[in-house]
Amino acid sequence: MAGHHSPEEKSGILRQYFIGKRPMADICEEYGIQPDVFRRWEESVYENTDLIFRKSSHDGMEYYQNYDLVINWLSEAFRGRTLEVLGIKTGKIRRVCSYKPAEISVSAGILDVVFEDSAGKGYHVEEQRNLTEDDLYRFASQHFSAAKEWRDNITDIILASGRPYAGRKEIRTLTGKYAPLIIDLTERDGPARFEEIREAVSRGDTSLLTELVFLPLYGGERKPRFVRNVLRFGIDLCKKGKMPILLVAAALVMANKQIDRSVFNELWEEIKMLDVLKFAHERGKEEGKLENAREMVLRFLEESVGIVPAYISDEIMSISRPDILVRLVKQATTCKEIEEFEKMLKLANRKPRPGVGGNGV
């Protein structure tokens, strides 16, 4: 498959690298891509990371997400579970996907994806803060687009947050009607439900944790302290190995209009660090998987400082100790200058002087 690659093909290839954790060398060989070309694609992703969380000009609390990331998080969070936390009877979720794969960012609401259950039935879920009847007309046009792709085997669900919704719940025309399931999350008592979930976890019951994804949307008013407590609870459970990290990330996505941007970024960095260290440690300790940990160091170093000199790249790729790679991943995510990282790299690779340590030989 050498030669020109469309944007969609590039996205699929890079997804294998970032999400599928495939070694770059294997991907380049399979698709006939030169390593320097692949690196340029990767650099393009990092140069456009503002698309992951983009600030809207009219609402400082709207940070739009990259579709691939959101879908990946929700797939991991709900695979094998149902949507009963929303009050909807479904089969077990098999996958989460988008019916608009060419779009990068979400222009309305936070969530616009399709959950597919084990019976092959689709559930098109939209989340809209301060839902209005105008939104309903917009969603109606999207519904028929999704219905065409899913051969009408799809149910529309609108999660209403922010202000309570008092408008009509269906649109009737001379040729038909649009009647989605509108779930008004503003009517739910978030703090009370949070306490019930905490008590269940304290008893060893983690079956309710999936609901944490939607808990930040419960209640009508903006409630940053409550939302931060929910997210902190999830992060602490993740550190103890009691909650999947992608479930925490999905909850943070849903909370992005409820907390200040500085708090959002602080929690996002903490979640990212947990994932990085976990990945680097697990991949690094497995035989034959050291290359993945080395490439993780390089990816985050490039994100922090830009272009990495070849001699530093070569030195990183020569490291064979997983514990050193784990420490370097953390350094790569926090350093501001390449010289700062180079100093830590030299310390990590420093060998004892003759006569120091060991038997003094």
Rank of each mutant, 00 (worst) to 15 (best):
G80P: 13
A251E: 01
R327A: 12
L51K: 08
H4L: 10
E266K: 07
V227N: 09
I19A: 08
E337C: 00
D184S: 08
K278A: 12
N48K: 07
D152M: 13
D184N: 02
L246K: 15
E295T: 02
Y64Q: 09
L14V: 09
L69G: 05
V113W: 04
G234I: 07
K257T: 14
D323E: 15
Q258T: 00
N48E: 05
P101M: 13
E43N: 10
G284L: 03
L301K: 10
A310H: 13
E9G: 00
E266H: 03
E127K: 01
A146G: 02
G20H: 07
D117N: 10
E127L: 10
V248E: 01
H281M: 02
R15F: 10
H281A: 09
G220E: 15
Y64R: 14
I319N: 09
L290H: 03
I338N: 08
E133R: 04
K10M: 12
R327F: 00
P224H: 08
L267I: 12
I312W: 04
V106E: 11
V326T: 03
Q128V: 14
D323K: 11
R198I: 01
R168M: 03
M1W: 04
R81T: 13
H143A: 15
F144M: 06
P7Q: 06
E30C: 02
T173I: 07
I104Y: 12
K89Y: 12
V297Y: 08
M317G: 01
R228E: 14
L298E: 04
G60S: 12
R232M: 04
I307D: 11
G12S: 05
E211H: 12
Q16E: 15
N72W: 08
A140W: 07
T155N: 03
R39C: 02
F264N: 01
L217Y: 08
V85Q: 13
P35K: 07
V113E: 06
W73A: 13
K21D: 08
L159P: 10
M317V: 01
K92V: 14
S44N: 06
V308L: 10
H143E: 12
S98P: 12
V106Q: 09
V263M: 06
F194Q: 06
G219W: 08
S105R: 14
Y63I: 03
R228W: 01
D314C: 00
I235A: 07
I235Q: 08
I271W: 02
D156T: 09
F226T: 03
G87W: 13
I27R: 03
A332E: 05
I338K: 04
I338V: 15
D275C: 04
L111R: 14
R138G: 15
G87P: 13
D314R: 12
A332S: 13
L237D: 07
H4S: 07
G284D: 03
A280M: 05
W150L: 11
S105F: 01
E196D: 10
C335P: 12
D236N: 12
G204S: 08
C335L: 05
